[in-house]
């Protein structure tokens, strides 16, 4: 079943001005439930823009983005926000709320869902323990390393038990060891049934993905399948920590 799909999606920034940027030009991809998909390509190829559209964080200039078959363009702002709750998004710069404790950062997206405070705290503790941050719960983001902040961002994305986890360049700010741990973590999350989509040009992370979409200047590279995807064999180490 297709969880997320794009049909001939284009995105133009500053449309009509001299600085117009065509970030995406007619991209069609399909991400079935349970996939580990990777968007790759050179810097400026449109990976982050496409990921934002998949995560319902932006609207395309033309074309369609479908979640569970529903076109996001016709959904109200209210319904769009509800769709975002089904998706956990990990930003390249983590986008944690500065000054707020780690556990508070993780529980913030759960507040409007009416989950009681104690339950929210327990969910945060559970996720942070899983990500090896149990002893950092009361720290503030600015007191953590880049790798730790990345894991807090993942914990926040997973706290709402999303159908899909979308991560933008998740290994780009990490050292080799932390990047390795993160790859294993994403593979584990995928193995537990969560759809994972990453935008990356980390070759080792691409090796973990089951489907790779290669972008170039806002278009899918030729040579991919009908949806622009290249099927790759899952690596033997997938799911291992």
């Amino acid at each position: 079943m297709k969880l997320i799909e794009t049909r001939n999606v284009a995105k133009v920034f500053r449309a009509g001005s001299k600085e117009e940027v065509r970030a995406l030009r007619g991209v069609s991809i399909s991400i079935p439930q349970g996939t580990f998909a990777a968007l790759t390509g050179a810097s400026g190829s449109g990976k982050t823009t496409l990921l934002a559209l998949l995560g319902a964080l932006d609207r395309p200039t033309s074309g369609q983005v479908l979640h569970d078959g529903d076109d996001l363009a016709v959904l109200s702002d209210f319904e769009l926000a509800r769709r975002r709750r089904r998706i956990g998004f990990v930003f390249q710069n983590f986008s944690l709320l500065p000054g707020l404790e780690v556990w508070n950062n993780v529980t913030y997206p759960l507040i409007p869902r009416g989950i009681p405070a104690r339950q929210r705290y327990e969910l945060a503790a559970q996720q942070l323990k899983r990500l090896g941050l149990a002893d950092k719960m009361s720290k503030r983001p600015e007191e953590l390393s880049g790798g730790e902040q990345q894991r807090v961002a993942i914990a926040r994305a997973l706290a709402g038990q999303p159908q899909a986890l979308l991560a933008d360049e998740p290994t780009s700010n990490l050292d080799r060891k932390a990047a390795g741990l993160l790859r294993a973590l994403l593979a584990e999350i995928h193995a537990q049934g969560t759809t994972v989509v990453v935008a990356t040009h980390d070759a080792e992370l691409l090796a973990v993905a089951t489907t790779v979409y290669d972008l170039e200047a806002g278009r899918l590279k030729t040579g991919a399948d009908a949806c622009g995807a290249s099927e790759v064999e899952p690596p033997p180490a997938m799911g291992a920590t």
Binding site: G55, L57, A81, F89, S95, Y108, P109
Partner: peptide, 16 residues
Amino acid sequence: RREIGILKATGWQTDE
């Protein structure tokens, strides 16, 4: 703006 952007990205409604 950035803070609100983060809240909206993580599922907060405009009225919230």
